[in-house]
Design a protein around this nucleic acid. Structure first.
Lengths: 327, 327
DNA sequence: TAGCTCTTGTCAATGTATTGTCAATGTCGT
DNA sequence: ACGACATTGACAATACATTGACAAGAGCTA
């Protein structure tokens, strides 16, 4: 039918265990009892799995944890399995307010679902899961207990090679879309401080910047999100044009060259001392020297960033005394 | 209403309980006493239900809670049950449609507003203009009379240097968000063909790809939007993992080097001949030679692309004999 | 209205089926 | 040779089926 001259199936069972999350004994049991997957063999008899097999196992695992019987679904086709996991027609029982531990549990189950959907590139499903989660958890908890852990996990899997660039690309584009939904409930005051968000040139991972944008939205700032990978001039130009009060940059990968420090120096010079520069992200620590040199703020965590925003809010909004939460 | 072409009974009673809301003992009692449902059995004797059975049980449950006696309605057909529950219901769709010239005029005024907002980096304003326009013009007209011209104009100004990268970045991120809004009304069929959308490596402008995604959504395809700038392996991996039927690439800038032709050849080889490759965008014409060589389709315009999608739809949906509209 | 029957939802007791896990033993690959 | 893998068989914990029973109502009759 199809000529698989390409990446021939080449994963040993230990790899499959790591990627699919199904234990080795169980994988073999599923094969023995229901022919759930039919890996080829080496000359010596070791099982050899393909990418599709891994995806299939991930789907099966998700389906079983949702209560389906493995014996009944083991032989379903890829499409049928995916349909089984579609988060569409669903009658969620009326729910009283959940506790924190409930939240955590719910968030974890959502993370699993999202991960499974991500592996089969089902953007729709990810969106649906996100939507449901936002409704069920609330935007704040959604971000803290679902989105942040999810991205952390993605970062780890990225480093370990489990995750491919295409996964990250797709998930990024889904989350970008969601930013709109999440923040549409928050209408910042017309005198709220303005923040420009981007990543320096060479930094193409924008998930951290997106999170920052969401946090700042929740804090009531007026955000202009520029997307990733911009030179200092462009960022500075946007600052001037929009009369922004601050710039937030996300740096997640440390490069050996001196581009980043150079960009930061240039940017700071261009925007002037009246505009605050904040730098965050998992690799921001590497550039501590430059940041101190130019007087930029460095945020180590989400909470850190929130605190900074609050402090800056006071500073920039000083003319208008704060009357927040007086509704 | 119900396109249950797939009648693979695969639900054990616990699943049915969760989905229908009827307790297990009661389901069995209804079967024993009135043959309300007649599930098939596994070799071991466990009941196995289909989607129809679940729907039927839901209907029965609702009917009984409304006072009907189970003994009287248990044997009714699906249609009779539905009639029982919905005495009458009608939605008068009254819509005063504007003329085409109205549309064009409106769209132009919106384009002006958006351009102004873009120049001062007011993302919020662009969004609200877009939102208003979508409501006023409808999603289809919005895309054709507003979005496409706007992007065309942006492309021209980009070349002439009036527009800066930061403008394009911000507008891109706003439009990406809008994709979500626009398509949230469209729910593709579960057996719709799948399309992967991206741009080849080196092509960082994704507006064309976004438009393509929107068009394909409206045509009822299931879209996985990967974002821009991906190597052939990654795109191919997404194709394999998602079982996609086709790939659409947008190429807007012609580069002198031979990267693009090389990538296209590699991609085609990796995805195989069963997966269709479509290439569009303002610079697609430059690569006619390669596209013909590998048997890829080339689309010159939006209408062209639409036509292609329609043709391919027929081809890919062929295996499932079309019984649409046979309610 | 008391008494009777029929309907219907629920439950308990007992046995079978399914399924995740593990141990013992042998083989493969580097 | 050692770690990773395969095979087989077994076991315990759930989940399911069957049967029979029971109680709360509803409807009917005297």
């Amino acid at each position: 039918m199809s000529n698989y001259l390409d990446d021939a199936p080449c994963y040993l069972i230990s790899t499959v265990v790591k990627r699919s999350g199904v234990k080795a004994d169980l994988i073999r049991a599923w094969e023995r009892r229901y022919q759930a997957v039919t890996p080829s063999r080496t000359d010596g008899g070791h099982r050899v799995y393909s990418d599709q097999d891994i995806v299939r196992l991930k789907l099966l695992k998700q389906a079983t944890t949702e209560g389906h019987s493995i014996g009944q679904i083991a032989q379903l086709s890829f499409d049928e399995l995916q349909k089984l996991l579609q988060p569409d027609q669903h009658t969620p029982p009326s729910r009283a307010s959940a506790t924190t531990s409930d939240h955590r549990y719910l968030a974890e189950s959502y993370i699993e679902k999202c991960y499974t959907a991500m592996m089969v590139f089902d953007a729709r499903a990810i969106e649906s899961h996100f939507e449901n989660a936002v409704v069920e958890l609330g935007a704040q908890v959604f971000m803290e207990s679902l989105l942040t852990p999810l991205l952390t996990r993605m970062g780890e899997d990225w480093k370990s090679g489990t995750l491919r660039p295409s996964h990250e690309h797709m998930t990024t584009s889904v989350i970008r879309s969601m930013v709109y939904i999440l923040r549409s409930n928050y209408t910042p005051a017309s005198n709220a401080p303005r923040l420009i968000i981007s990543t320096p040139i060479g930094q193409q991972h924008e998930l951290g910047a997106l999170i920052a944008a969401l946090i700042a939205e929740f804090k009531g700032w007026r955000i202009t999100y520029l997307g990733p990978d911009l030179p200092a001039e462009e960022i500075a130009f946007a600052v001037k044009s929009s009369n922004a009060n601050a710039v937030a940059l996300s740096i997640t990968i440390s490069t050996e060259d001196h581009i980043i420090p150079k960009e930061i120096r240039r940017l700071k010079k261009l925007i002037g001392r009246d505009v605050t520069l904040i730098v965050g992200g998992s690799a921001a620590g590497e550039y501590k020297a430059v940041l101190d040199e130019v007087g930029a703020l460095r945020s180590d965590s989400c909470d850190d960033f929130k605190q900074m925003l609050d402090d800056l809010s006071l500073q920039f909004q000083a003319p208008t005394p704060l009357k927040i939460l007086s509704a």
